[in-house]
Nucleic acid binder design. Structure first.
Lengths: 198, 198
DNA sequence: GTCTATATGAAGATAGAC
DNA sequence: GTCTATCTTCATATAGAC
């Protein structure tokens, strides 16, 4: 195997496994020792691939963003209507319910953590949210296209983000799956009503 | 001044000022050096009042809970109807908008932070949320008393918690006050509609 | 009760042998 | 490219003089 390929492969393994670790421990409690352990790479070796812990975070977020973009593109081919796509988005917390209950939303909790006196890192974490926000705005634009709605697509997208973040926070705190189920059903009704007001 | 009074006074000063510090830095990034600095007490001296950092957290949360209980009791005398009280609750993020934009919700962000592999501490943080949750449930019970509503008061309370947590998260990430304003108005309409369905 | 000095451990990061 | 040994810094926590 060529040298560059090997490097890329090990680097990818570190990033993939650190993604999960970051989610479960948070950024500040995640140490290089932890990273080395889950990545199955000698501790000092991580520094061959990443200069600093911030660099690791950056790589993990970029990896996450790649996955999100790919997922959203797939959805656009698999679900023909914006209503279906928006409902699919709202399903995420329910599909990931065990993890949401145990650790919260990976995107929201990271933003909350870094939002406290680590603004340069929070800016990185925000990029994840931007991906969803932009995509949701696009879907809502299509949804309410010829409906003189009194709310803009951007506002509707923000509202949907608020609902998914809120239910992740509360269901996480109360360790209660039924909250997710109920709230997702509410969201589906609300999305239907957005179309119905023609 | 009697010895016991002096101790209580210094202890209270540490707790009050650490409350703010905890909010702004989060638990894991808040060091004893920071605490000593904001409390204006020599570093090693904190240990006379608190054995561990966890003990400081416990005291701060107890202090917060006391303040919350007092506030809610005041509301019950100042606002005669449950509708007014619920609207007053929804106003909190708007009243605290600068701080919410900069640091998020003090209660929600603490829960999110401690919810990751620090479950014994998260249990403490959850107690804050319980205070609001129980009080909101009580208000919703009064609100929908004789209305055969299809949603229970507990579910409505959880939904309101979700909305306030969600808007805190999103407005914090996007540093956008207008989100708070818009969402609080939405909540007020929703609360009105809860009564209107008689 | 107050404060200083310090023990102890773990973190991020580096140097350099292999 | 890989891995070990180690540097430095800063954290929590303690001992003990005053």
């Amino acid at each position: 195997m060529a040298r560059r390929e090997k490097t890329t492969q090990v680097r990818e393994q570190i990033v993939k496994r650190t993604d999960d670790l970051l989610y479960k421990k948070g950024f500040n409690l995640m140490s290089f020792t932890d990273i080395a352990e889950v990545a199955d790479v000698p501790r000092g070796n991580i520094y061959y691939y990443f200069k600093t812990k911030d660099d690791v975070l950056k790589a993990v977020i970029e990896y996450r963003i790649e996955g999100m973009k790919q997922m959203l593109t797939e959805w656009e081919t698999n679900y023909p209507t914006p209503l279906q796509r928006l409902k699919r988005y709202a399903q995420i917390p329910l599909n990931e319910k065990q993890r949401v209950i145990e650790y919260g939303c990976p995107m929201g909790t990271l933003n909350s953590e870094l939002g406290k006196s680590q603004t340069s890192l929070q800016h990185l974490a925000k990029q994840q949210m931007d991906i969803f926000n932009n995509w949701l705005t696009k879907q809502f634009t299509l949804l309410i296209a010829d409906q003189g709605s009194n709310q803009s697509a951007a506002e509707l997208a923000e509202h949907l983000l608020i609902l998914t973040q809120g239910m992740s926070v509360i269901s996480h705190i109360y360790k209660d799956e039924s909250i997710l189920l109920r709230e997702v059903q509410n969201i589906e009704k609300w999305l239907d009503s957005c179309v119905a007001t023609v």
